[in-house]
Write a protein that binds this DNA or RNA. Structure first.
Lengths: 253, 253
DNA sequence: GGTTCGGCCTAACGCAGGTGAATGTCCGAA
DNA sequence: TTCGGACATTCACCTGCGTTAGGCCGAACC
């Protein structure tokens, strides 16, 4: 099995200003690119692939589907994020990946990427930092789904999406894009679409969010974070700028 | 903040036969070891540490605590597993780590470990494989907590713990150890202790499990896996034995 | 202009699982 | 031999959320 059929190979316009070092994104911009239309599948659960993906533009969702058909969104991919990042040469992907918006990804052969990593400390550092971040987010989501009620879950998701966008310079003044349908929010939060709707309306009534036409506004991030018991430290790992002495050794180079 | 106080530095007896290559465990056996008593804290959420931990013997739990006190177990550490594996030199740990049994861990400075990784392809491969496995398990748990009901969750947890032990040669003939209290099962599954008890009794009544005095028996793993909709592929990543050509390049070495 | 389809919203009803509390059992320490 | 603490068990009661089933709107397409 391979990637879903190709749409275009033209390098896309570059991302706008990023607030954090994300060398991965810079790197990706120079690779072979592929674009997908909204709702187009990128990879299916169970496929094998010899490539890793780096999202350059747009959003993707990663879902796990159970035998009986129930689906859970386990991760959202934003620009700079990795997909199927297991570097074993041909590994089975454990989740389906679908474009949520128009999506541009860089496709890099795993073998090739591994050799690049050995030669490029900065890339290597970016890559492993990214992996750690994924794990950290995933752990947090385990806690959220295990302990929080519906309102907290939805609020937490929206906070996270806002802050992740802020990090890549895609959020300003409490506003960011949010190309998710309520059904997708539900699938990410482990709720039904009906109940998600109730919760969103409740958040709106309390003046905590505005959410319409793919746009999310959070008037008071502080209040919102209180509702969600949001503690953003899980999004900011380790040393953003390693010391000079470390630049060589830093992540396994 | 540092590791909880030390108990003993004697190298412990080695693990018994392992079914899978786990070089990490071999490696760990040669490092500085530390042991903890059951219920002893190893690290607290929010601590900074310049060390990674490799579990040599015993079980640990990793929990995330919310601001209001609710706790969720986000991972169980078995022999060969890593804790606080973020290699950034001094990173904050996002979860508390506590010994569930008498526990022996290897403590390795991150800086030191990084240099070891660069020089040792086999260690490096083991390490990154382990990281990928953690992520894979965590993703799966996101799906479990988001989609499954109580019985499925508990059954899935028990299947996973059984198979993970089988992998390291700690399960035979459908029997393995399970040093968890019902409260801990509950904290891992996002349920209350009361309801977890109901579910366990139900599983017992159906003859799916025997569970008493820290011992778990699964008479028919097949039936159990059916109840849990268990698909073990998430526990077996990538190439167990990379080709010769790859041994050098394989994981970022 | 009608039809279809995706997305949002609403309402009535029922149940899985939470809550709170009491009781039982085992076991190690004094 | 008794005491206390950790765990398991059971009960009565309640509620957050799922389920089912609809209605409304706008966009895309004939």
């Amino acid at each position: 099995m391979q990637f879903a059929q190709q749409q275009s190979v033209l390098p896309q316009e570059r991302q706008q200003g990023r607030r954090q070092d994300n060398f991965l994104l810079e790197f990706a911009g120079l690779q072979r690119l592929r674009t997908y239309r909204p709702r187009q599948m990128v990879l299916n659960q169970g496929d094998c692939t010899a490539h890793i993906l780096i999202i350059v533009n747009g959003w993707a969702e990663q879902t796990i589907q159970l035998a009986d058909g129930r689906r859970q969104i386990v991760a959202f991919g934003l620009p700079g994020d990795l997909c199927c990042s297991d570097l074993s040469s041909r590994s089975r992907v454990e989740q389906s990946i679908m474009a949520l918006t128009s999506l541009t990804v860089a496709i890099v052969g795993k073998l090739e990427f591994r050799t690049l990593l050995t030669g490029n400390a900065r890339l290597s550092r970016s890559f492993w930092r990214n992996q750690m971040l994924s794990l950290s987010i995933q752990r947090r989501w385990t806690a959220i789904l295990g302990q929080m009620d519906a309102r907290e879950r939805v609020a937490h998701l929206l906070c996270e999406l806002y802050l992740r966008q802020e990090k890549i310079g895609a959020a300003v003044q409490g506003a960011c894009s949010c190309p998710l349908t309520q059904t997708q929010v539900a699938e990410a939060c482990g709720l039904t679409q009906v109940h998600t709707n109730r919760v969103i309306q409740d958040l709106r009534r309390r003046g905590l969010i505005e959410l319409r036409t793919k746009r999310l506004v959070i008037p008071s991030l502080k209040e919102m974070m209180a509702v969600a018991q949001f503690d953003g430290s899980y999004l900011d790992l380790g040393d953003p700028e390693p010391t000079l002495a470390e630049t060589r050794a830093s992540q396994p180079a």
